[in-house]
Structure formats: C-alpha cells, structure tokens
Design a protein around this nucleic acid. Structure first.
Length: 254
DNA sequence: GCTGACCTCCGTAAACTCGG
DNA sequence: CCGAGTTTACGGAGGTCAGC
C-alpha cells in the first residue's frame, strides 16, 4: 500500500484551505497555531500530531480518512448533462446534485436570513440539510440532490465549496469573515435575487418551514438538535448520509 | 538517580519575494 | 505600497544517552 507523503498531505491541506477561502493566518488561528507553523505543515516540512490532524480535518470539513486517502481530490461540480435522465426509475433513487436548483435555494435561504447574525456557514449547512431531508421524507423525491457527509461539526453538503466559489466568481454571492460571540464566522450575502420560478410551491413550502423553525437557533443548539436526528445518528462519521434514513425519523424530527 | 552534551522539534520574529 | 506566503535565524522545551 502506498502511503501519502508529508508533502502531499501539506498540498492537500493547502488546497482545501484555499477552497474554503481561508488565508494561512485565518486557518492558523482556528487551529490555534502560528502562521509559519501552518506554512511549514503545508510545505511538508513539519510533522503533524494526530490531534492537529483531527483539528485540521474538522476545520476544513473533511474526514481524516479522506484527507489521507489514496484517491483524494478536491470535489468539483460536474454540470449535469440532460441525456442521462433516462436511467432513473429506480425505486431507491440515487441523489443527483441539481446545481442550479441548489444555487437558487442557497440564494433564497440567504435572502430570507439576511440580518440574522447567527446564520453563518454552519447554520446554513444545517438549513440546507433539513430542507433536503425533510423534503425527501415528505415527497420521496430529492430537492437539491446534494449528498451530505457526516462530519464532526454537522452534516456538510458535498461539493459545496466549489459551488460557493463558483457563485462568488459569478458575483451571485459574496463571502466575508466576521466574529460572532467571539468565534470566527463565515457569512455569505446574496448579490442577486433567487430565481423563484425554479422552485415549485411544495419545495418553497418545505424550505420556508425549515427557515421558520431553525433560522433563529444558535449554531450549537441546532447542532445538538441535528445530532439526534435519525439519519445523522445512523451514519458513520465521514460517510455520506443516506436519504432513505429519513423514513426512520421519529418525533419531533418527522 | 543525576547531570551535562547533544539533538530534534517547534514557535516567534523579521526579512524577503511576488503579485495586485 | 500592501497583503499573502516563504525563508531564515534564533531560542526554548524536551528527549536521549553516556558517564558518574
């Protein structure tokens, strides 16, 4: 088995950091280490303790497994082509990310949560998660089709970094860093209006309910709450959360 | 067990490079 | 010039090991 080198690990960390829009300085602060130390790690000149590795993985929203895996790659979005719709019709449908819908829903949530200082990146992910899973539970169809991975800070939509970066490039949203109750917070503001024509009534309804219910919660409160949700509970850390698990939910999640 | 020489690892500060 | 990242120099902390 080929193990990854220190240098490769450093490059991965560096790439992940950039994809999340952090400078070395910012990430170093989150990791509670000096900036040159992080520089050394990214250059592969400095060894990592397991504790540090865990911290890095957490802060970059990946699992340690993935960070060290042989076939690691930064997730990119492939624009779905229309000619592969015919192979649906499976009873258990495989989620397929609908990028445009995902962007619209993201814009919609950001617009509705404008002025709510608690809605940072973490809460945003959770609003997306509940929207997706609630919708699937009710209608047995995928809303955005995004896959969510179980990570220590909560469910994280896969490929979100590249979608967000694309939206920033396209001037659809802007990212800025701030502080909330003494903790660094990443926030996004919508620069354009969501295209509501892309959302049917039932979809909008589910999203609205999620926003009404959770958007005023603190990140830690919704964290505790979501960590008792069946799909979350039944998944292993680092793995993709199965949509089918939404059907095993109990009150008050169901 | 203690001590001193030596070594490695890591953090800090400052200088430097490079691109906008 | 400024900001981000890199390099360099220095020093502290801690481990190892021979010699006592």
């Amino acid at each position: 088995m080929k193990t990854i080198t220190q240098k490769e690990l450093g490059i991965r960390i560096s790439e992940l950091r950039k994809s999340k829009g952090y400078s070395q300085d910012e990430l170093a602060k989150l990791l509670e280490m000096s900036r040159p130390s992080l520089t050394q790690i990214e250059l592969g000149n400095r060894n990592l303790s397991v504790i540090e590795l865990k911290k890095i993985a957490d802060n970059l929203s990946v699992s340690i497994d993935k960070l060290l895996s042989k076939d690691f790659q930064i997730e990119t979005i492939n624009i779905p082509s229309n000619d592969d719709n015919f192979k649906e019709e499976l009873r258990i449908s495989i989620p397929k990310l609908k990028v445009d819908k995902f962007k619209d829903i993201l814009l919609y949530i950001l617009e509705k949560c404008a002025g709510k200082p608690n809605v940072g990146e973490t809460l945003l992910y959770k609003l997306l998660y509940f929207s997706d899973f609630n919708y699937y539970e009710i209608y047995e169809e995928h809303l955005t089709g995004a896959e969510y991975r179980k990570l220590p800070f909560g469910p994280v939509p896969q490929k979100i970094d590249s979608i967000i970066n694309q939206m920033i490039e396209d001037k659809m949203i802007a990212r800025f860093k701030t502080e909330y109750h003494g903790y660094p917070q990443t926030r996004y503001i919508p620069l354009i209006k969501p295209n509501l024509k892309n959302l049917i009534a039932s979809e909008k309804d589910v999203i609205d309910k999620v926003i009404d219910q959770y958007s005023d919660w603190s990140a830690s409160a919704i964290s505790d709450y979501s960590h008792k949700d069946m799909p979350w509970l039944a998944s292993k850390e680092g793995e993709v959360i199965d949509y089918e698990l939404a059907f095993y939910r109990e009150y008050p999640y169901s």
